[in-house]
């Protein structure tokens, strides 16, 4: 049974696209058949992070409007064959998305894949609403700071009222993914602690992704971080989160940078 997952946050720049790519790739690396769908029409990024920007012919809008078939628009990843991308249009705006068209596309995708992962746009406008509407599972991406937490709270309220599942009176499965977490800064009180964020949002924690240079490096080379540096701290955290999404019980630990004496002494200067 295919699951539709939306990666959402309300606030922009917290790591939705990075997390979509990393979780999608991690689930695919574990053997599932995965498609990642970019709902950020007009400001598409997922194709860049997935390294597929030079292979985009048709996009989500073309499929929604019936100008192209789904198979024509899907881009299969070159590194993992069971990972596909449905890119967004950069030239159109979100008004080109219609509820009926989105429903048909999601329905078709559910017939082909185990996981349909929708990368929501920021905000609470039409694009974000359509991205979450058909979701069975939501991953709410939050940075440990107050504005991100408040926007996530708003989005959780909408997940509970504005989705197809909520309208049928069913509960949507919600998970919290804390990104850009810096244990040192949280300990010094410069950042909200994990406990604070979980307490405020009161939904189950899916994972804690530490702040890491690997994430930026992976984005720049056009690769999900779980593919670019699978042994790194961010990738390990994403792998754990993906296993929890699949229903496994994995102990919640924040992966830490293991620093040798030399890098401790010279690391800062070299960087």
């Amino acid at each position: 049974m295919a699951k539709v997952l939306v990666v959402t946050s309300g606030k922009g720049g917290v790591g939705k696209t990075t997390s979509t790519a990393a979780l999608g790739a991690a689930l695919a690396q574990n053997g599932a058949n995965v498609v990642v769908v970019d709902f950020d029409v007009g400001l598409r990024n997922l194709d860049l992070v997935m390294g597929a920007e030079r292979r985009v012919v048709y996009d989500l809008i073309n499929v929604v409007q019936g100008d192209a078939k789904l198979v024509q628009a899907l881009i299969r990843d070159k590194r993992i064959e069971n990972l596909s991308l449905l890119p967004a249009s950069q030239t159109r705006d979100k008004d080109a998305l219609t509820p009926e068209g989105v429903e048909r596309v999601i329905g078709e995708l559910k017939g082909k894949f185990d996981w349909v992962i929708c990368d929501s746009s920021a905000g609470i406008e039409k694009g974000a609403m359509l991205a979450m509407y058909h979701a069975d599972v939501a991953v709410v991406v939050t940075n440990p700071e107050v504005s991100s937490v408040r926007d996530s709270d708003r989005i959780i309220g909408m997940l509970d009222s504005k989705t197809a599942k909520a309208e049928r009176g069913e509960a949507i499965e919600k998970h919290l993914l804390i990104t850009r977490f810096d244990a040192g800064r949280a300990a010094r009180g410069e950042m909200l602690s994990v406990d604070d964020v979980v307490e405020i949002l009161s939904i189950p924690l899916l994972g804690i992704i530490p702040e890491s240079e690997e994430v930026l490096r992976a984005s720049n080379v056009g690769s999900p971080v779980t593919l670019a540096s699978p042994a790194g701290i961010a990738a390990r955290a994403y792998f754990d989160a993906a296993r929890r999404l699949s229903g496994e019980t994995v102990e919640m630990v924040v992966p830490m940078e293991r620093k040798g004496l030399m890098s401790r002494l010279f690391g800062r200067r070299v960087a």
Partner: peptide, 26 residues
């Protein structure tokens, strides 16, 4: 449930009891 940011509960007839939290902006 918690009352989330952006939500507004109006009950003019009497007391309101909330088992969760009232979020910032609610």
């Amino acid at each position: 449930q918690p009352v989330r940011s952006g939500q507004c509960v109006v009950f003019e007839k009497g007391d309101v009891t909330i088992l969760g939290s009232i979020g910032s902006g609610a």
